[in-house]
């Protein structure tokens, strides 16, 4: 099946006909509904909140925010989708806006954000003037700023391949978010990917992603299949600094030694462990 993202820009793809077809399909309604419920579960909001729905479309995702007692603002680039949202008497406040141009809200305003099946559209630059990376970073920078400290976002998306998946997750981490990926029904054709983002302490207060990584671990703790994206763990191949004396550092040094033909002790489970002081 060809991906709509590869055929047309979103505002042209979601024209009146397509938007109507999308919104009235009972199959789509039920999928969007279950993914939104999952996102809400991951957000774990404990009180009625102010939520941003990015790529809200005709309101299929937003209506679950309303029924959970939240007030929401939705932004979407397709006027046809928003017109259907109006027809359906959606409770959310709607904006015609392009997430790739940023998220135009005062800093620290929203309690949380969701996005259901929209983010992959950002991987296709739809004009020659602006790169996909540029649009992604404008989006995540804006989202980061518009969420309150301690705020969370859950974004379900359909990456075309690993390149897109990495493009999106690394743009989120670069913006300052603590990030984790959750995959439901992996290895099946129904697999669903959720990017879980947290806004930790203010940027600049914490060096690197140190706290960010921990935050998101708490959010998704105990949930099966969650993969915390933590730049620090990348060791020497990633951007993070490898700590001198750490296990990975020792293993790498030993490997280097072996490659140079030196006599190096074999690796064991004790390699790089802290030794107890001996009295």
């Amino acid at each position: 099946m060809s991906r709509p993202e590869d055929t047309l820009p979103p505002d042209l793809f979601y024209n009146d006909t397509e938007s109507y077809k999308y919104t009235t399909s009972s199959r789509i309604k039920s999928i969007q509904s279950s993914m939104t419920q999952r996102a809400l579960q991951l957000l774990a909001l404990t009180s009625p909140s102010m939520v941003l729905d990015i790529g809200c479309g005709s309101g299929l995702s937003g209506e679950h925010l309303s029924s959970s007692g939240h007030i929401w603002v939705g932004m979407d680039i397709s006027a046809s989708m928003l017109a259907i949202a109006l027809d359906r008497d959606t409770d959310g406040d709607l904006l015609l806006a392009d997430m790739g141009q940023g998220v135009p809200f005062r800093p620290g305003t929203f309690d949380a954000a969701i996005s259901i099946s929209a983010l992959q559209w950002l991987c296709n630059a739809d004009s020659s003037e602006v790169s996909a990376t540029g649009r992604l970073s404008r989006f995540f920078d804006g989202l980061y700023s518009s969420l309150k400290r301690g705020g969370k976002a859950v974004l379900q998306f359909y990456p075309k391949n690993d390149v897109q998946r990495t493009m999106i997750t690394s743009a989120a981490v670069k913006a300052g978010f603590g990030a984790g990926l959750l995959e439901d029904d992996p290895e099946t054709k129904n697999k669903k990917l959720y990017l879980v983002l947290t806004v930790g302490a203010g940027r600049g207060e914490v060096v690197g992603g140190a706290v960010a990584g921990r935050d998101v671990t708490d959010v998704v703790k105990g949930m099966e299949g969650v993969d915390v994206i933590d730049e620090r763990r990348k060791g020497k191949n990633g951007k993070g600094k490898e700590i001198k004396g750490s296990k990975s550092w020792i293993l790498r040094k030993k490997e280097q030694g072996r490659n140079k033909g030196r006599a190096v002790k074999g690796d064991s489970k004790y390699t790089g462990r802290k030794r107890r002081p001996v009295f």
Partner: peptide, 14 residues
Amino acid sequence: HQGIANFLLPNHLV
């Protein structure tokens, strides 16, 4: 219009 604000910008303003 109809309660929906249009925040689409020409690219040179973004």
